Amino acid sequence: MDEDNPGFGDPMTSDRRLRLWAVLADAARGGAVAVDHVCATAVAVTGVDSAAVSVILDATPRELMYATDRTASELEDLTLTLGEGPCVDATTGGPVLVADLTEPECRNRWPVFAPAAVLAGAGAIFALPLRVGGIRLGVLDLYRARVGDLGGEQLADALVLADTACAVLLDEATRPGGDRDDHSPERTGLRHPEVHQATGMVMVQMGVSAAVALIRLRAYAYSQDRRLHDVAADVVARRLRLEPAGTSGDRNG
């Protein structure tokens, strides 16, 4: 399931890179290649149904940069809320390739995420880390409704696109603001700034680290069957205050 070395030959060949870059350039229509073009190309060449790119930030483990459709957004939201799944594991290891989310191994490894992802429409997930040397940038997540592995050529293309996504993210981070091509409504940077704000508020209120504050927010969201960003919005709006363990409980209003 985890693939440090997929074993399908060398995906980083010049011919493959040139072919995929031509597809990306065509998708960009003369503009700068961005993460949405990488995701769209990944869907086109790998046979998956949707794709997303998330980045790793200090305040939270990941932040969605772009998703090709509502299903991808829903699955990324599940990952953020639950804090488990292939896309989480890929941030600290190699590619995590899950051909069938209904397998017992998946339910044992991700007991909450796996069944929820299946209900959301995912049969298979392929999570590819975005990494430059020892620097972890994020994850390229590929989602497919039907079960089954990626073919060797499809996986090789996906790995090249993950490498390309790294270059795109680094380029966008260093490009002057006026030079950004932000015509796409989906390319909005931080999707849920309230999660970061709420994490900071809970840190202060409870006197804990950012990691513990995020765990507390997630635990509350899970116990109430709510999404993390909705709970965070209530915290930021002061409709909800999370209390330290051992007190009378969390308060609304």
Rank of each mutant, 00 (worst) to 15 (best):
G9N: 01
G9E: 00
D10Q: 12
D10E: 11
D10S: 14
D10I: 05
D10W: 03
D10R: 08
P11C: 08
P11N: 07
M12C: 07
M12E: 04
M12L: 10
M12V: 06
T13L: 11
T13I: 10
T13N: 08
R16T: 08
R16V: 11
L18Y: 07
R19G: 09
R19D: 11
L20P: 14
L20G: 12
W21T: 14
W21E: 12
V23G: 04
L24D: 04
D26Q: 15
D26F: 09
A27V: 07
A28I: 02
R29Y: 06
R29N: 14
G30Y: 02
G31T: 01
G31C: 07
A32L: 08
V35P: 04
V35A: 15
H37K: 09
V38L: 05
V38W: 00
V38Q: 02
C39I: 10
C39D: 12
T41M: 05
A44C: 08
G47F: 00
G47N: 00
V48G: 06
S50R: 01
A51M: 03
A51V: 03
A51Q: 00
A52Q: 00
A52D: 00
V53D: 04
V55A: 01
V55C: 03
I56P: 03
T60W: 00
R62A: 14
E63S: 13
L64P: 05
L64D: 10
Y66S: 05
T68R: 03
T68Y: 02
D69T: 08
D69N: 14
T71S: 15
T71V: 15
T71F: 04
A72E: 08
S73I: 12
E74I: 09
E76H: 10
D77G: 15
D77A: 15
L78D: 13
L80T: 11
T81Y: 04
T81P: 09
G85M: 11
G85H: 09
C87N: 11
C87K: 08
V88F: 03
D89P: 14
A90P: 15
A90Q: 10
G93W: 04
G93D: 14
G94M: 05
P95K: 02
L97N: 13
A99N: 01
D100S: 12
D100I: 05
T102N: 10
C106K: 06
R107P: 14
N108F: 00
W110M: 12
F113D: 07
A114P: 09
A114D: 06
P115G: 03
P115V: 02
P115M: 00
A117C: 12
V118S: 13
V118G: 14
V118C: 15
